[in-house]
Nucleic acid binder design. Structure first.
Lengths: 216, 216
DNA sequence: TATTATCAATCAAACGTTTAGTTAGTCTAA
DNA sequence: TTAGACTAACTAAACGTTTGATTGATAATA
């Protein structure tokens, strides 16, 4: 908890302040959305003055943009590597799913922020984000086509497949606050699930679910 | 578009006003969240004065609650029927998925509103909602157990299965604004997908994906 | 039937609060 | 000593809600 708080080391450290703000804001944006995350609350959680948001990021929108776009390059690289790889389609699909999963581990709040953007039609993001997203979908489209060609996948709609993969994973990570509350309140009788195991589950489900039906 | 506007029939019709507000607010809550949906915008879209929100619903929170809870009874009935049915587990799972799909068709904005609640840990909903949600999960848990017992499902984690099913469907419907923008802007080269076909896709994916692996 | 009384429904304006952003000055590390 | 980092106090705008007046449908009354 309170992962955003600035460490109490040096009194004046611009980099530490920026990081504290980014961490605090990421949590609050994920949990409450752009309008629900108040600058006062972000600054308080980060342990700095709220004027620092304007000072370091030129306002709330600027802070939001920095958070949202700091992983675009990483995403670009990872999925580019899968695209360039020489491997059968089912392997690529597993890597695709694993990479989406890795992003969630890297940035636990990314799922919720992405979901909110997707629901609002990309209201707060710059076109660069749309490009990256289109590229990721194009990759999955390509993988599915390859799999159908290779005979390892049945002829499924790549758009549908994209939605099941992204939907499953993003929902799993975005739903954590609710899931943990339900478990804590004893409303569901299950142990806290392991993210890595869930990713493995999605990999298996899709590998098996896309296997062509044998004509015996 | 502008589906919330009050019909121009009678000048004073409390029921029509309430409906217009509910419709307008549902769209805006789904698209922008609780804090992002401003009372001014809701009232404008509904074509009524913004004081009507407090008059008819005792404030923004009251309007939100009415929207969120108007389908709880329906959900309760539908999933109760599946639970009570005498059918093999794979049939029940298909019905489960179909029912989640039907809810989306009934209330196109429900997915986004639910997702936002799930991300915030149920910040704006009353405990009644949590109960219903727990009951739905319990049903899926039961179906999976039955399927494993009957030998039609491999021994999967019901919590994971729940997340893949709910995640896939809710994401598909919640992402509509983004998807339609991407298609409209020509960033992805696909036709607008048919919701019913997507539901069928999820049914197939899970039926096949949960089939036990043959030991040959 | 025509008139009047009544009250739910509606609206424009105003209220108090909250919000994002700014400013003027202070502090600290180098 | 100075440039950059920081803060408390402030401002203007936006927000949800309340208020007081007004409208129009309805039903009792003449």
């Amino acid at each position: 908890m309170e992962a955003g708080t600035k460490p109490a080391g040096r009194e004046r450290d611009a980099e530490a302040t920026r990081e504290a703000l980014i961490n605090a804001a990421t949590e609050l944006f994920a949990e409450r959305g752009f309008d629900g995350a108040k600058i006062d609350a972000i600054a308080r959680r980060a342990g700095v003055n709220k004027a620092m948001v304007s000072y370091h990021f030129a306002g709330k929108q600027g802070l939001y943009a920095v958070i949202f776009e700091r992983d675009l390059a990483w995403v670009h690289d990872q999925f580019g590597a899968i695209d360039a790889a020489l491997a059968p389609a089912d392997d690529k699909l597993r890597r695709f799913i694993a990479t989406v999963g890795e992003l969630q581990v890297r940035r636990p709040s990314w799922a919720a922020m992405m979901l909110r953007e997707v629901m609002s039609g990309g209201r707060h993001v710059e076109p660069r984000f749309l490009e990256t997203f289109a590229r990721v979908f194009a990759l999955l489209q390509k993988i599915v086509a390859q799999g159908v060609r290779e005979g390892t996948f049945r002829p499924v709609d790549p758009l549908f497949t994209h939605h099941t993969v992204m939907g499953s994973i993003v929902f799993f990570f975005a739903a954590r606050p609710f899931r943990e509350r339900m478990i804590a309140e004893g409303r569901v009788n299950v142990p806290t699930p392991d993210p890595a195991q869930f990713i493995a589950h999605v990999q298996e489900l899709l590998t098996l679910g896309l296997t062509p039906i044998k004509e015996s």
